[in-house]
Design a protein around this nucleic acid. Structure first.
Lengths: 110, 110
DNA sequence: TTTTATGTTCGCAAAATTACGAATAATATT
DNA sequence: AATATTATTCGTAATTTTGCGAACATAAAA
């Protein structure tokens, strides 16, 4: 077994962050978070990129576990994966919260 | 002026997320969040990668605004950029929070 | 059964990311 | 002034990402 360079949490957080590291994927999530019905076509219309590219972004989000899809006739229905979404919320909250308690200026000025 | 494909918030959130999308950069931030003194050398020792690569990751975090550096003799002192860190915390909180209110199962089962 | 509608996958190109060692810069120290 | 310490930048290679159109798959509709 190779040396565990980073912790599981760090790896997981990085995986979520990487999946969210593109404006199109953020826009997809924003859209999905507001819809109960969520077909590929609607998402595709919302974005300024080709459908093949939209499909790729959806795959990236799916592989990170942030969304999920379900085939329905010739259409495909997507939605937020709420369980992992909550996990992401907890991890980001913990990660981004760990520096706030120490109020005051930065240790490096400017 | 080109069409604004995405909102400012979406772009900014994606920029922060992209910067955090690598375990080494998460590890760097974890380390910095716990230290008041934070020289390059200490960060470098903490990571299993070459110093040139560490420097690159630091630059990526710096360009995203999440950390900042200050030259001090032959050493360089790094720290969290607290102002932008707080902004990131707010943006991620808002983004990841927008789906939680609707409790219940996912719209797509399985 | 042939269309039609809806998305995914394929093949490709351009660009960006990740990683490293070597070279360089900048400043203390001897 | 020469040397040592510290970290960035350069040059390069391998991989991944992003994006598109065309081809394909699947199932409903005609």
């Amino acid at each position: 077994m190779a040396t565990p360079d980073y912790t599981i949490k760090q790896e997981l957080l990085a995986k979520f962050a990487k999946a969210l590291g593109h404006p199109a994927r953020i826009a997809i999530c924003d859209f999905l978070a507001k819809q109960e019905t969520c077909y590929f076509g609607e998402i595709n219309e919302e974005l300024p990129i080709a459908k093949a590219t939209v499909s790729q972004h959806l795959t990236a989000l799916k592989e990170a576990g942030l969304i999920q899809g379900e085939i329905e006739a010739p259409k495909v229905k997507y939605c937020i994966n709420k369980e992992n979404w909550r996990l992401a919320r907890e991890l980001f909250g913990e990660f981004l919260g760990q520096c706030v308690c120490k109020t005051g200026g930065n240790c490096c000025e400017k």
